[in-house]
């Protein structure tokens, strides 16, 4: 079906056949919603584990002494802003504005990478300075596995959006532009070059679906930021 749609230039017309389902919602979107419902339970389980163990052996670690709340608040803000850029990418995609979509996607990716760098820095810092490791206490166990799982979600999102960005590039873009710079050229050639030149109007749906995932991962972060970081600063919950 997609091959027929690809021949039209109008992005709305390209997407119309995908909506021909019993509910009018595209299959991919519906499946993504189902996945997100499931992912809620994944994070729900991890967050509950963390909260259950939060006050076990509080003398071993005092989270507020370890956290660098300003830094985490900043990277949380950046992640939220990436959602805005993601929304703009989806809107551009639906209008058929590919160059604009690419710009916003790159912005989303960039913000996602800032968030991830913040997390890498934070993990390093906690391990080196505060001695908080996976096996230093159960707090370390739940903290790293929970925030680490979220980090993996963000990283997968970045990879996913990068693939769509690569798809919008002219065919074999990486080949020509990066040829002189071997260190950049080779990974691009291997990973992203096969994707270049593949974006079609009906792929706006795929970008939208990736966007659903991205927004979800951001929303989950707000919950994690509250349940893991902010709670520790509220006097009512402290000791």
């Amino acid at each position: 079906m997609s091959s027929h749609a690809a021949t039209t230039d109008d992005p709305h017309a390209a997407l119309a056949p995908l909506k021909k389902t019993s509910t009018g919602v595209e299959n991919k979107k519906l499946a993504m919603w189902a996945f997100l419902a499931s992912d809620c339970m994944f994070f729900g389980t991890l967050i509950s584990t963390h909260l259950i163990y939060r006050k076990v052996y509080p003398t071993v670690v005092e989270p507020t002494e370890i956290f660098d709340i300003e830094l985490t608040a900043f990277s949380s803000f950046i992640l939220l802003m990436s959602s805005l850029l993601m929304a703009l990418s989806v809107s551009a995609a639906h209008k058929g504005n590919i160059a604009g979509m690419r710009r916003f996607l790159l912005g989303t990716i960039f913000f996602g990478l800032i968030f991830l760098s913040g997390q890498v820095y934070e993990f390093n810092h906690f391990v080196r300075e505060s001695g908080l490791t996976l096996s230093s206490s159960v707090f370390g166990s739940t903290f790293y596995v929970l925030t680490g799982t979220h980090g993996v979600h963000v990283a997968l999102g970045v990879l996913w959006l990068s693939c769509w960005t690569a798809c919008t590039l002219p065919k074999d873009w990486a080949w020509y532009t990066l040829k002189g710079r071997r260190f950049l050229w080779l990974p691009f050639r291997v990973v992203f070059a096969p994707m270049t030149g593949r974006y079609k109007h009906e792929n706006a749906l795929d970008v939208e679906v990736a966007g659903l995932y991205w927004h979800f991962v951001d929303v989950v972060w707000i919950v994690i930021f509250t349940a893991v970081y902010l709670v520790e600063y509220l006097p009512v919950f402290g000791f």
Binding site: T21, V25, L30
Partner: peptide, 8 residues
């Protein structure tokens, strides 16, 4: 789920 909801 997608099949039953969408492809009747």
């Amino acid at each position: 789920i997608t099949t039953i909801v969408n492809m009747r």
